[in-house]
Write a protein that binds this DNA or RNA. Sequence first.
DNA 1: GTGAAAGCGCTAACAG
DNA 2: CTGTTAGCGCTTTCAC
Lengths: 325, 325
Amino acid sequence: MAALSGVSVKTASRALSDEPRVAAETRLRVRNAADQLGYRLNGVARELRRGANTSTLVGLLIGDLANPFYSRLASGLERELRMHGLQLVIASTDEDSDWERRLADALLERRVRALVIASSATEHGYLEAEHRHGIPFVFVDRPPVDLAADAVLLDNHGGARQAGAHLIAAGHRRIGVVGDLPGLSTHRDRLAGFAEVMEAAGLADWAGYLVESAHDVDAAERAVHQLLSRIPAPTALFTMNNRITSGALRALRGHPASPALVGFDDLDLGEVLGVSVIVHDPEEMGRQAAQLLLARIDGDRGPARRVVLPTRLLARGSGERPPAG
Amino acid sequence: MAALSGVSVKTASRALSDEPRVAAETRLRVRNAADQLGYRLNGVARELRRGANTSTLVGLLIGDLANPFYSRLASGLERELRMHGLQLVIASTDEDSDWERRLADALLERRVRALVIASSATEHGYLEAEHRHGIPFVFVDRPPVDLAADAVLLDNHGGARQAGAHLIAAGHRRIGVVGDLPGLSTHRDRLAGFAEVMEAAGLADWAGYLVESAHDVDAAERAVHQLLSRIPAPTALFTMNNRITSGALRALRGHPASPALVGFDDLDLGEVLGVSVIVHDPEEMGRQAAQLLLARIDGDRGPARRVVLPTRLLARGSGERPPAG
DNA sequence: GTGAAAGCGCTAACAG
DNA sequence: CTGTTAGCGCTTTCAC
């Protein structure tokens, strides 16, 4: 191809890479030849030649693309990275820790510049060597286990306390709690926060209204139906993530005496539906992750940092209903 | 590193790549040495050596990560690709056609195996050369312009007809229509379908209640407020995509006499809210895109295909309200 | 079952 | 402003 425009490969390379020392006329000639041949620089070769830490790709591993929490996180991260010339590559783990590891390996083999992980795994020692070699890792939403890497987390404990305290203040004593898989750290932290505030209020038997392992909307809907059929029925519900809140809303539709409801995570139409929720800022989580990662790329070799983002209770009606029974 | 375990580079390569002709004992020794050094095969070099069309990366360009339509599409695509050993790389264009082109170039330079694009651009001739070179392109949601590439589209025209016909059948004569940017093909097709059914019903002046360019939720909310303040007010609304429907629901909250409402695209809590919508299957769009792309990778050199996915009206209450005034 | 040499397409380094 | 040489880390080919 260089031949076609009558220059050396190096000149062609310079022309196509926008390097300065090329005659305008030469540049144009090379460009035209390239266009005509449908030729373009091989980024793979470029990256190999330039060396490992020159890639502009940052990987993101998340559990579920369709969960708005993750997509908003991705969105915040992507925007911040873009402003620094980096490109985001997202892969979905389907909350499967084996597949997560396979994806991490694949991205690391491709020498991504850094890796952001919302991990479903319970062990991250396999990243130790890479980490020591200076590849930045940032864990989001869930902390790393057995690895001293940066993390951006939510104040899960505090958020759940806010939810519990709010319902207790409205006069509720029997509060149904619906949670995700017990193995998830976010679930455990939220549950601990809720337990703390319940016990402080002298409601030590709160766990009688706890249902766990509601990992999708359907399971949450069933769990809520089941809770509401207990005698005596709970007068309020605390749903511990956005999918569970959706399921609860489905279960509550047409239910005669709706219990009060506070959910963790905001919902798309939460405002319209009047659902009180514990809100936080998923985009900000992405931006913070980007900041940590950019600092590492810039050479920061300090100890692992942990950023904890605040939560806030947003009263929209459902959480303020007084006990019915 | 090969040195450490006392074998040649080639043997090390074989051991780490799971190639068959290696003694079990040698393989183990190499593996251990690699683990200890935190060494892993360089996928960039591998890809360079193996040649262009051996990459396992497929690119996806979408307008907005946080729009559930796109994330569900991505999810369907990702799952299908994964089953065929391919990995999805998602990048967000922010609905900006220049940035879209930059991203496409970046991914093509990296020699992705194929590219799936939900394009915001009005011209795709710049992909012509690559396309002739055999890189598969699949356009989703919006068709390619000036390029004979595969596409998976919705029956936008038919869906809008269904919406219009449904509202007319319920007795509505003044229907407010809120649409996205007029330049988008999806918008144009939906508008054409709606126009057709309105004109067939003798309602030739329907365009008096049309507002376009409501590109985000806030703009849609304002547009609906404005429509409802007209005299005489519309008795029904057709909102032409999910963001617009969300905005309309916000505007309608607390509105005394709610007009009937049919929206294009489903909503997360559409069932709970009782919103009648034109539904379709974004995951299926992703799967179909994967099928087209896999066929091309398998050597299919036939003419460009176009798959059109059906839409369906889902009556949930809001679209069945009779005219109030 | 293992090894040596060559080369994928590019760019860093150094001429000219 | 342009050209030459070498080599990034791997795998292909061929030999042992």
